[in-house]
């Protein structure tokens, strides 16, 4: 563990953030799988990342890189909850006058670090960010990819480069909802481990458990956190596989 800066504790209310997501999606029901990414993003911005909505361009801010840009509703909701932009922006996503699209554009949205949508760009960009920040800033780079997104060969290149360059300031969160059509024999984490990453498998049943995994960092190697979002807690606290 090398995190020396005090961790944030904003205590974003999970229910309120879900309501904000619903304002984007128009979805009154709270579909568990749709909110698996939300848990990761909410916990990151609640308990892990050092970011300040009043200084979104602070050079020492932590970077959250949403590579899997085709599901930005949760990120938009969390950024709005943290005050990066007004909540009413969530009400007309992808309209002509909206800065928020179905894929995010970093030049339009405060707090959004990359424009994404085409799969396989976020992890290579995050590797470059980590190289640029290393030895110059205490900032961490946390990139979120999907298990199906890992199909893109650009990710394999980036996983290899990050391992060879021992990027201790880089974390890759893989949201594993088993959406990859061909699967990952031996598991997703093995793809990172063989390239020298430290890996953690976690699920979304506990915010504290998720936060602990996302805070983990080692100085001499990048970190992969594989989040199994098919195991969810029910209202009674029982774990089921979705």
């Amino acid at each position: 563990m090398t995190t020396t800066r005090l961790g944030p504790a904003h205590r974003l209310d999970a229910g309120r953030v879900r309501d904000l997501v619903a304002r984007v999606t128009g979805d009154e029901k709270h579909d568990p799988s749709a909110h698996s990414t939300l848990d990761v993003v909410r916990v990151l911005y609640d308990q892990v990342l050092h970011v300040d909505p009043d200084a979104p361009d602070d050079p020492d801010r932590d970077r959250f890189v949403l590579s899997k840009g085709h599901g930005p509703a949760s990120t938009y909701a969390v950024l709005a909850a943290r005050g990066f932009f007004p909540e009413y922006w969530l009400d007309d996503v992808a309209s002509w006058d909206s800065a928020l699209g179905h894929h995010p554009d970093r030049t339009l949205v405060p707090g959004v670090e990359i424009g994404s949508g085409s799969l396989g760009h976020g992890l290579p960009l995050a590797v470059g960010m980590a190289l640029g920040l290393r030895v110059r800033s205490p900032a961490r780079v946390v990139v979120l990819v999907g298990d199906a997104e890992l199909d893109e060969g650009s990710n394999a290149e980036a996983i290899q480069v990050a391992g060879r360059f021992a990027l201790g300031n880089l974390t890759c969160v893989v949201v594993d909802n088993r959406s990859d059509g061909h699967g990952w024999p031996g598991g997703v984490a093995a793809r990172f481990a063989v390239e020298g990453w430290t890996t953690t498998d976690v699920d979304t049943r506990s915010d504290d458990g998720l936060a602990a995994a996302l805070r983990r960092a080692e100085p001499d190697r990048p970190t992969a956190v594989v989040v199994d979002t098919t195991r969810v807690a029910t209202a009674t606290g029982r774990t089921v596989t979705a």
Binding site: P59, R63, E113, I114, G120, H121, L123, P124, L125, A126, V127, G128, M129, A130, L131, G132, L133, R134, V135, R136, S137, G153, S154, E157, A158, Q160, V161, R164, F165
Partner: peptide, 25 residues
């Protein structure tokens, strides 16, 4: 640290360049 050879990985080469530029390099 300022001359980075990513190996024969041209997609990563441009992605790394983009990430560097995003941090002011």
């Amino acid at each position: 640290g300022r001359v980075v050879d990513v190996g024969i990985r041209e997609q990563a080469m441009i992605g790394v360049a983009g990430g560097l530029a995003l941090t002011g390099r």
